[in-house]
Design a protein around this nucleic acid. Structure first.
Lengths: 143, 143
DNA sequence: CGTGGTGTGTCAAACTATTGACATGACGCA
DNA sequence: TGCGTCATGTCAATAGTTTGACACACCACG
C-alpha cells in the first residue's frame, strides 16, 4: 500500500476537491440564469475592468485566449457584450457590457455570493483572512 | 466600478487560481513521462486502493465515470492496468496496476512531490497544517 | 416471489477546451 | 529606415469531457 502521502500532496488534492465542489455549486446556481461558470467569470472581469482586452480576459479566467474568443462570440450573439469593430493599438477590440448584461450579472452575483458564503460560513473573519494569506503563499510558490 | 467583492469571493478566485497553477505545473512534469494529470490521479488512486471500481475512481478524481472509462481503456492499451474480464457483484470489473505502471508511478510521484514542495516551501509545518484544516472546513461548507 | 430503486459499465452524440497555425500591428534596436 | 521580437485576434483540427441513453445485476420491500 505504501501511501506515504505528505501533507503537501494531501493539500493539493484538497485544493482540487474544494475547487471542484465550488465550481459545481456555482454551476447549479448560474444555469437557471442561462450562464456557465466561465461566462460568469468573463462578465465579472469585464464589469470590474471595462474595455479589457480578450487576451487579458483569458489570462484572468485561466483558459486559452481561443476559448475566450468563442465564448465572447456567444455572449455577443446574445446581446450581452458589444465589441468595437475598429481595432486599437495592438489590433485589440474594446469590449463592453450591455445594460442587459449588467442586470443579469447583478442577479448572478447574488447567487455566487450565496455559494461563497456557504463555503465560509463556519470560519470567523480572522481565520478567513489567514486562510487567504496562506493560500496566496502557496500560489506564489507555484509561479 | 462597484466591485464590492467580499473576502469570500476573493477566496474562491484564489482557490481556482492556485488549482490552475498546480495543474499546470503537474502537467509540465508529468508529460515527459507520457502521463496526463487525470491519468496520474487514476493510477495513484488505483495504487492506494487496489481493485477499486471504475465508478468510485471517477468520484475520487472528480470527473464523470464515462471519462474515467475511456481513460482506463487508454491505460489498458498501454499495458499499465489490467481489468478482470469477469464481473463482480454489481457488474463491476476489478482493476489492477501492472508492474510497469508501478515503476512509472514511482517516478511520477517524485515529480509531483517536487511540485507540492514548491507550493508549500514558504510555509512552516504548523501553518501548513492550519491551512489544511481551514480549507477542509470550506470544502465541508460546500457539500 | 416480483418489483421498484440503485449502482455499474458502456456506447454515441454534443459540447468545451486546447493545440497549432497564420496574419496583423506595435515596439525596441541597430 | 529596416528588422527581429512580441502580442493580439482568429481559424482549423484535435483532444478531452460531459450529457443522454441503454443493458445488466444486486438489494430492500411489499
Amino acid at each position: 500500500m505504501t501511501q506515504a502521502t505528505t501533507i503537501a500532496e494531501r493539500l493539493g488534492v484538497l485544493i482540487k476537491e474544494t475547487q471542484a465542489l465550488l465550481h459545481q455549486r456555482m454551476d447549479e446556481r448560474l444555469r437557471p440564469l442561462g450562464l456557465s461558470v466561465p461566462q460568469y467569470a468573463c462578465l465579472t472581469a469585464l464589469h470590474d475592468t471595462p474595455g479589457i482586452t480578450g487576451s487579458e480576459l483569458a489570462r484572468r479566467t485561466f483558459v486559452s485566449r481561443q476559448s475566450t474568443n468563442v465564448l465572447l462570440q456567444g455572449l455577443e450573439k446574445r446581446g450581452l457584450i458589444e465589441r468595437s469593430p475598429d481595432s486599437g493599438p495592438r489590433r485589440e477590440r474594446a469590449t463592453e457590457l450591455t445594460p442587459e448584461a449588467r442586470s443579469l450579472l447583478a442577479r448572478a452575483r447574488t447567487q455566487v455570493a450565496g455559494v461563497a458564503d456557504a463555503m465560509t460560513e463556519s470560519l470567523p473573519a480572522a481565520e478567513l483572512r489567514q486562510l487567504e494569506a496562506l493560500l496566496a503563499r502557496c500560489r506564489d510558490g507555484l509561479r
